[in-house]
């Protein structure tokens, strides 16, 4: 799989008085899991929605493989995106939901069965989604995003509401996608779930970029042990808190 990078340049979104995202720039590379981190309200969801054209930026651009999302001919075959709370009609079955979007993207029904298998939903495929657990909904959202076998995945808080086993499963799953050469951008406000699998980090706070780069590099700058995970489970969390605290301090000085 040839890699497709995501590039965000000077992205800004204002909602009246509120500036959700300010002049944000970063690049997400293929073949890696990039953690898009920041506290609640930092502007992560707004950024992801601007990348895929659901929200129009006030200024700036987002490009996928050099093109804006809306000008990609069959976008679901290039980018798979999933937002929290699985957008599914509760009276649809998992299979019916996937069949709607398979038709929309022009994918064969066989692909629906493959994804139900891959996401371990085959047993629940013909049940109404209303009865699904959070984990099952998240997996159905992932299945929908993967229908077109896209090289880029943008996942907004995919670990929300997952139990530790679900998070471990997700981590392995994302690692597999990145190892296959895909570009994987995963937002999270909870660090434990991504820290053990993130290669790169994009850290935002209050709509602004705080830090971006390789995890190891950032950890070294912040004076944290570069050695990863289990031994130092608080590592990324401390980095996160340190860096956002610094930013909060800057703001206070500015105002």
């Amino acid at each position: 799989m040839t890699g497709v990078a995501v590039e965000v340049a000077g992205l800004t979104k204002r909602y009246g008085e509120v500036t959700a995202v300010r002049d944000l720039s970063f690049v997400v590379r293929p073949g890696a899991v990039t953690a898009f981190l920041g506290p609640n309200g930092a502007g992560k969801s707004t950024t992801l929605r601007m990348i895929v054209g659901l929200v129009a930026p006030s200024s700036g651009t987002a490009r996928i493989g050099g093109r804006p999302y809306r000008s990609i001919p069959r976008p679901s075959s290039v980018v798979g995106a999933a937002f929290p709370g699985a957008a599914v009609h509760p009276r649809h079955t998992a299979r019916a939901h996937l069949r709607v979007y398979a038709a929309m993207g022009g994918y064969p029904d066989r692909r629906v069965d493959e994804l139900l298998d891959l996401l371990e939903l085959t047993g629940a495929a013909d049940r109404h989604v209303a009865g699904f657990s959070t984990g099952m909904r998240q997996r159905l959202g992932l299945a929908t995003a993967l229908l077109g076998d896209p090289p880029v995945l943008l996942l907004d808080e995919p670990g929300n509401g997952l139990d530790p086993a679900g998070i471990a499963w997700l981590r392995t799953f994302l690692r597999g996608l990145a190892d296959a050469g895909r570009t994987v951008l995963v937002s999270s406000h909870a660090l434990a779930e991504v820290q053990q699998s993130a290669d790169d980090v994009v850290l935002v706070s209050d709509g602004r970029l705080v830090a971006a780069g390789g995890y190891d590099e950032l950890a070294a700058t912040a004076g944290l042990p570069v050695q990863r995970p289990a031994a130092e489970p608080a590592g990324l969390e401390r980095l996160f808190l340190d860096l956002t605290a610094q930013r909060r301090g800057d703001d206070r000085c500015n105002s």
Partner: peptide, 10 residues
Amino acid sequence: HRTVDVTFLF
């Protein structure tokens, strides 16, 4: 049900 998000993604 917010399926409009998915619809406009596809």
